[in-house]
């Protein structure tokens, strides 16, 4: 240990101690710094339009790309679809994740808990693209779902390449994230609190509504934020389950960068997405207060 201490004295002398915190912060600052740098570059390229004759960005600065995003009905539609998709995904994911994690946390049978955990995590290990393919197989016209419907005499219906399919895929994809964020929040609620609610006259539903949900609020908001931002910026589910007809913003950005090579428009869309995501987070935090997320401070 002495040798270690002596080496430490040479590498990081005692007088440097006050700066230890900053030194440890460096990697984070570096990472965020690079991201900000990239963001500035994006902002710069979003201010140049693409010259269709030379396929080079224009020399002069212009807001033309933003005008296109705002005025072109296609982009309006895409943005609206992304926002609606994200909101619906948050709603349905939390609706399913809350009872799921509640049962997982409260069950007295460790076998049930294990089954719930494994069921949750098995799809988690499989990549998003593979899962989307899986859903294609299940939901296809001759897929498992339609075969099952056929058994009860229902004609095959188109379950794929529409908006509900994308939301379904997103909910299925987000569920593990939400459950993982909710479970600790529910674990933190003492069982005794629910027992108390029962002794005070609350039935199961009232206890859930007046005690469990308010006390799980930090977890619900945290899970909602994560699910919402991930869904808003998702690429694979709209691309694969939407079949090109249900593009989200990320798909539009991809098209601009890699199909039409219009970097400027792509960058403008990307920045729009950053703004949308930030506004979403800002709204949630201003409504519920940072305090509920355990970030200190009061509402």
């Amino acid at each position: 240990m002495d040798a270690l201490n002596r080496t430490l004295d040479i590498v990081w002398p005692a007088r440097m101690m006050p700066y230890t915190g900053w030194a440890l912060l460096m990697p984070a600052l570096l990472l965020v710094g690079l991201l900000v740098l990239g963001l500035f570059q994006m902002a710069d390229s979003s201010l140049h339009t693409l010259d269709r004759s030379t396929f080079l960005p224009s020399e002069n600065y212009t807001l033309e790309n933003y005008r296109t995003v705002v005025e072109n009905a296609t982009y309006g539609k895409i943005i609206w679809r992304s926002v609606l998709g994200a909101v619906l995904t948050v709603f349905f994911t939390l609706l399913l994740a809350l009872p799921y994690s509640y049962i997982m946390v409260r069950t007295s049978s460790s076998a049930v808990r294990k089954v719930l955990l494994v069921t949750l995590f098995l799809p988690f290990f499989i990549g998003q693209v593979v899962r989307a393919y899986g859903l294609l197989i299940i939901l296809g016209t001759t897929g498992v779902a339609n075969n099952a419907l056929g058994l009860v005499g229902v004609e095959p219906i188109r379950l794929l390449f529409n908006f509900p399919a994308v939301v379904f895929g997103l909910v299925q994809y987000m569920l593990p994230f939400a459950v993982l964020m909710l479970a600790p929040a529910l674990t933190a609620i003492p069982r005794e609190t629910e027992t108390a609610a029962a002794s005070l006259g609350a039935n199961w539903l009232q206890s859930f509504r007046h005690v469990v949900i308010p006390m799980a609020k930090p977890g619900l908001i945290g899970a909602g934020l994560v699910v919402g931002t991930l869904a808003l910026t998702d690429f694979a589910m709209p691309a694969m389950l939407g079949g090109g007809s249900q593009d989200f913003i990320a798909n539009a950005i991809y098209d601009q960068f890699f199909r039409t090579a219009d970097q400027g428009l792509g960058a403008a869309l990307a920045l729009m997405l950053v703004v949308l995501g930030s506004v979403f987070v800002a709204i949630v935090i201003s409504i519920f207060g940072a305090g509920t997320l355990g970030m200190g401070g009061k509402k």
């Binding site: 003492p190 609190t193 002794s199 006259g201 039935n203 005690v211 609020k217």
Partner: peptide, 20 residues
């Protein structure tokens, strides 16, 4: 009768007050 249908007031070991 389940607990919520009884007329019993209880003070719990860890009080179990509702923090919200």
């Amino acid at each position: 009768a389940p607990p919520h249908r009884r007329s019993i007031g209880m003070v719990f070991q860890r009080l179990a007050l509702f923090p919200h």
